[in-house]
Simulated scan of single mutants.
Amino acid sequence: MVELSNKAAFVLVLVSGIVVPGVLNYVASVILGQPLLGRAVWVLGYTGMVLVVWYVWLRPLDFTGPERGPEEAERKVKD
């Protein structure tokens, strides 16, 4: 099986999370005449994509700034 790079997997998740629910929304709304079903499919698909992106790529990130030691903090206050 072919392994995807991290960027390729990210793009694949984004495209499939937008295109697939959008097409299914169109099919359910226009072709089947069920706009509520189409809207539900789109919302669930898009939300699922957002959750996957958060869980796989955003959750592991560490958004903290650099830690300063006590000497640097005192120097900053004196300057």
Score class of each variant (00 low, 15 high):
V41I: 15
A8D: 15
Y55S: 15
R59Q: 10
W54P: 01
V19N: 02
V50T: 05
L4A: 14
R39K: 10
L61K: 04
E74R: 13
G38H: 03
V43Y: 08
V20N: 02
L14V: 14
V50M: 07
G48I: 01
G69A: 10
R75Q: 15
V53G: 06
V23R: 02
R59H: 10
L37A: 01
L24S: 03
W42Y: 08
R59S: 06
R75P: 02
G17L: 02
K78E: 14
W57S: 04
R68I: 14
P21D: 00
P66N: 14
Y46V: 00
N6A: 12
V23K: 03
N25K: 04
V77L: 11
A73Y: 07
V15M: 00
Y26Q: 01
E3F: 10
E74V: 06
V27K: 00
G38D: 01
R75G: 05
A9T: 05
S29V: 00
V20Y: 01
M1H: 11
S29Y: 04
L32M: 15
V77S: 10
P70T: 08
V13P: 14
E72R: 09
A73C: 10
V77K: 11
V41C: 01
V30H: 04
E74H: 09
A28Q: 08
T64A: 09
P70V: 07
V20R: 01
V56A: 14
R59M: 06
V53I: 15
L36M: 14
V11N: 12
F63Y: 09
F10P: 06
R75K: 13
P60K: 01
L44E: 05
P70Q: 10
K7E: 13
P70H: 09
M49Q: 07
R59N: 05
R39I: 08
S5Q: 07
Y26R: 02
V41L: 13
V56T: 05
A9Y: 06
G22T: 02
I31A: 07
V56D: 02
W54M: 15
G65V: 13
V56R: 11
W57C: 02
G45F: 03
K7N: 09
K76M: 14
L44A: 09
R75F: 06
K7H: 06
V41K: 02
Y55V: 06
F63V: 09
P70E: 11
L61A: 08
V19E: 09
A73V: 11
Y46C: 10
